[in-house]
């Protein structure tokens, strides 16, 4: 199994795959973890760095593809104008909203106090 997989990396990896130069640093891992709001300990940072480094090295095979003038694909089918009319079927019961809530009070969802400034966009 292991052998088979490495054969396929070699075959499909072309130049650049599994390169030795560093693609991502510990600091970048921490920054990305911040964006994704996932707390990592030091071991996890090191582990993720080495794994992502290898994966990103493999992604380098894309660099050789000439994509000049190629439109990106965001939907596999060319659908447009999927819209609905401005009327609705009404809302759900409050019980349904709160059913899965870890904490609620008087109909509100309750969360630990917001302390960190700057988490907020639209005031």
């Amino acid at each position: 199994m292991q052998d088979l997989i490495y054969i396929s990396i070699d075959q499909h990896g072309v130049e650049g795959a599994l390169r030795k130069d560093v693609k991502i640093t510990d600091d970048q891992i921490l920054h990305v973890a911040d964006l994704a709001l996932i707390r990592l300990d030091d071991d996890e940072v090191r582990g993720l760095r080495s794994q992502l480094d290898k994966i990103l090295g493999y992604m380098d095979i894309l660099a050789v593809v000439d994509t000049t003038g190629v439109a990106p694909t965001h939907h596999p089918l060319p659908l447009v104008n999927a819209m609905r009319d401005d009327h609705g079927q009404g809302c759900q019961d409050l019980d349904d909203v709160l059913r899965n809530a870890p904490q609620h009070e008087d109909g509100y969802i309750v969360v630990p106090r917001v302390i960190g400034k700057g988490m907020r966009e639209n005031a």
């Binding site: 909203v97 009070e105 109909g107 509100y108 969802i109 309750v110 969360v111 630990p112 106090r113 917001v114």
Partner: peptide, 12 residues
């Protein structure tokens, strides 16, 4: 935000 309580309350 409730200044007195350690909680915030969310309404969607």
């Amino acid at each position: 935000h409730d200044e007195k309580a350690p909680y915030s309350y969310v309404d969607y």
